Simulated assay, not measured.
Amino acid sequence: MKRTPAAWVVMGVSGCGKSSVGARLAALLGARFIEGDAFHPPQNLAKMAAGVPLGDADRQGWLLALRAELVRTLAAGECVVLSCSALKRAYRALLRGGDEYPVCFVHLHGPRALIAQRMAARRGHFMPSSLLDSQLRDLEPLAPDECGITLDLRQPLPQLVEQAAAAWPR
């Protein structure tokens, strides 16, 4: 039976586990995984690496590139899982685009202290721990009228993936 092409965007602040959950969810669902960070232009990476938070204008081109990649993948008949911070409702609306394909969100949420600990333990990542508070300030949790679920990132990775897969759009 052929599935309708659909997308999950695994969202949240840096260090919440978007890439880990997204990659495992995509593998479980037989979907394509897109690492959102790979689409950042060099100037965004340099800005973040220097400890400067991105603004809406910085994120615009990145989000448009991610939306274009989602549309390409969905139009090809594939299901997709994207890791992307999608911190603001307006960013999520841009990623969703029109109603041509279902795009839903998995918000990985948890305590600041745990996220900071995870960020501090990462090696070689462009995003410094010093930007966590700016991301938390920008974060607009999913609203009741947005397609998606919020998961507690303190749960084990397999459980997070299982819960996200159970909510996959059909």
Results as ranks from 00 to 15, higher is better:
Pro41Ile: 05
Trp168His: 06
Val71Leu: 15
Arg123Thr: 10
Asp37Met: 11
Phe39Tyr: 14
Asp58Leu: 11
Ala68Arg: 13
Gln135Asn: 11
Ser14Gln: 03
Ala116Lys: 04
Val106Trp: 00
Ser134Cys: 10
Met11Pro: 12
Gln159Gly: 03
Gly17Thr: 03
Lys18Phe: 07
Leu87Cys: 15
Arg122Gly: 03
Leu66Arg: 02
Ala165Met: 08
Ile115Glu: 00
Leu63Ala: 02
Arg96Gln: 15
Ala23Arg: 12
Pro41Tyr: 04
Leu160Ser: 02
Ile34Met: 09
Asp56Arg: 09
Ala31Trp: 05
Ala164Lys: 01
Leu142Phe: 02
Arg96Glu: 08
Val71Asn: 13
Asp58Val: 09
Ala76Leu: 13
Met11Ile: 14
His125Trp: 03
Ala23Leu: 12
Thr73Glu: 03
Ala86Phe: 06
Trp62Gly: 05
Pro156Met: 08
Arg112Trp: 13
Leu54Trp: 00
His107Ser: 07
Pro102Val: 08
Asp152Cys: 05
Ala57Thr: 14
Gln117Val: 07
Gly22Met: 04
Glu78Leu: 15
Cys16Asp: 01
Leu157Ala: 04
Leu63Asp: 00
Ile34Cys: 09
Val10Leu: 09
Ala57Pro: 13
Cys79Val: 12
Gln155Trp: 04
His107Asp: 02
Pro141Val: 06
Gly61Glu: 03
Lys18His: 11
Val81Leu: 05
Ala38Asn: 06
Val13Gln: 02
Arg137Trp: 09
Val80Ile: 14
Arg112Tyr: 11
Ser134Trp: 07
Gly98Phe: 14
Asp138Ser: 10
Arg92Lys: 06
Leu25Pro: 01
